[in-house]
Amino acid sequence: DSCIQFTRHASDVLLNLNRLRSRDILTDVTILVSRQQFRAHKTVLMACSGLFYTIFTDAHKGNLNAISLDPKVDPEGFSILLDFMYTSRLTLRDNLLLATMNTAIYLQMEHVVDTCHRFIKSSDA
């Protein structure tokens, strides 16, 4: 027996999901961060964030189609992390490093937090 491994499949699927997001196709939730609104797919949010996993697996909150985040969350930091979820690329802007890391802590995205922390420490050094 043998099998063919399509090495690009995961990134091809993610690119298509991001195309669906940018065209607002089958998005099923609006995330409200201060006065900004972000449309997304619950499944992608749950797959990437511990906080969204907890929210959308909750029997009562799971069916909500709009979620307001804590006002302390920075909309630009959230936007960077939402793009990361759909592209695997984390934009690091000097003036937003801490906001990005704090948003990742809030969203319970530990691996991103660790990576941001290491990046901040190395750039300080």
Partner: peptide, 21 residues
């Protein structure tokens, strides 16, 4: 234990959804 030999396909695996129709 059955050895399965895996062939790596580096090319695109699925259709690409256009930015708009």
């Amino acid at each position: 234990y059955e050895a399965v030999n895996t062939i790596q396909e580096l090319g695109r695996s699925i259709h690409e959804i256009p930015r708009q129709d």
